[in-house]
Design a protein around this nucleic acid. Sequence first.
DNA 1: ATGGCCAAGCCTCTTGGA
Length: 263
Amino acid sequence: MKIATWNVNSIRTRQSIVRDWLQQNPVEVLCVQETKTIDGDFPREPFESLGYRVCVSGQKAYNGVAIFSRILLDEVEIGFGAMLPAETVGDLDEQKRVIAITANGLRVVNLYVPNGGEYESDKYRYKLRWLKVLHEYIDRNLDRYPNLCVCGDFNIAPDDRDIHTPPGNKPIVGTTSIEREALKSILNLGLADPFRKFTEEGGIFSWWDYRGGSFPRNRGWRIDHHYLTPDLFDRTVSCQIDVEPRKLPKPSDHAPVIVEWDD
DNA sequence: ATGGCCAAGCCTCTTGGA
């Protein structure tokens, strides 16, 4: 089983890059973020013609998530509200950041965690509020699905190995201890990072700023992750970041990350 | 120390990204 996650930064702009990549890398499931389109304008046909079911939850211009699956789906669930009471979710499903599928006893949750803007801004507080509800949401998923893969753009570098320059005194959003602790407390519910099963090295990234030659200089962040329940983690044989699509003309600023486990 | 790029919208500037 291969499951990939990729922040595509507009599916309409990136559709041929993503389609070409899927042809060369026919993963069972691809989770994408920042689709940046309403569902009616989502380019489904390029992916359906490769044999993928296309599950979307988008909005105009911002955010948006989708799952391409070539394994049989039992269920598609959109938003936190699919598993949590309305009073817990509040307004957090207005931004389209959560979609999940169930297939053959496997649950895949695709997330686009809020960026967080500036430290202590409204957006930062929104991110922290979102992470609290995510904790509840993952808790419910773990209750119901023993085989769970949570993946997506987490907008958090888990530790200082995951950013090109460790933060100094000034708090950098995506690296603050509040965010990292929020992520850890979610993982402590019963999930682990398969990327760290294979290497303890730093300097391996999934996102590079478009500006300043960040990619050729490898000044990036590792913010796109998979998190797995113990049995899936034990069966995992690789977890890799494919930097090739980041080298193409008009790329996404993120690279796809692929996890593979033995069936 | 600062900014450097890119996408979408109704669009020649603003918002958002991380």
